[in-house]
Amino acid sequence: MTVAFETTTRLAPARPRRRSIVPDFLLPYGMIGPAVFVAFAIAIVPLTYAFWLSLQDWYMLRRPTPTFGGLINYKQLLQDGPLWAAFGRTWIWTIGTVFVELVLALPIALLLNRESAVARAASALILLPWVTPFIVLGFGWRFLLDSDVGPVHAFLHAIGLAGDSSILNDPVGAFAIIIFISGWKGTPFLVIALLAALKSIPEELYEAAEVDGAGPISRFIHVTMPEIWNTAITVGLVLGILAFYSFDLPWIMTKGGPQDATTLVGIAMYKAVFLDLRPAYAAAISIVMLVLLFIASLFVLKLRRRT
């Protein structure tokens, strides 16, 4: 008993009588090491390498190995009109996706913020678009929008949004509909986050507002909104970053077409490596993406309320 008492009071250094191969102070490093190694190999090393690569002159059709080229890729990049068009498109895409997500998620989260069995079941099932892989959703939507067999095409045709051929063949229509699909896929995640924020609002705040004579709309604006604002901004930023780095959906659905209408920067970068065989140029694109995204994120974080 006394022995037990002593060891529990002096927690960690229970050194005696324990035969261990590694000294105690090394143990945590040994345990976390492999995971850190993977993180290093998959994040830090590639990012550093991308930076180095972006300074090389490497057009694989001309020479098999990279040579130092300084800022040559960045200079070309500045004059690359189609690439900047792709950047512009990507911002529209990103803002559009997050907009669709906010517009769909807020009312749904309010609707699900109840204790009924239906609401609870629905808040589980609603996550299905989020967990279903892009490859399935992409082909699924191509099917739905197909001009021969797709019921959604039939609907869009009936209301005049699509002609005889699928909306995916129309540059503007394809871009708009894929933005919508991208937002639809991300909506559940925002719903669940907003739901968690809504559920944590203390009931007293509503009661106090009601005592003060606030109606439902005024309660929503003065109680609900401020309480869920930061969640919406933070999760919106996460979803925005994911949207900015979209590749799967527009590639699977339209391969960046028609007429480059859905060519996001991600797709332009992919084409730079695999079609143009210019990995160094692609690396420069990915560095520019990272920098632009970082700056944009700082602005978004400024929108957070101070608590």
Binding site: A39, A43, L47, L53, Y270, P279
Partner: peptide, 19 residues
Amino acid sequence: LILGTQMLPSLAVLVPLVV
């Protein structure tokens, strides 16, 4: 570092990883 990799989309490291 470990959590940060979560925020890093695959596309951001695609080019260097492939090379």
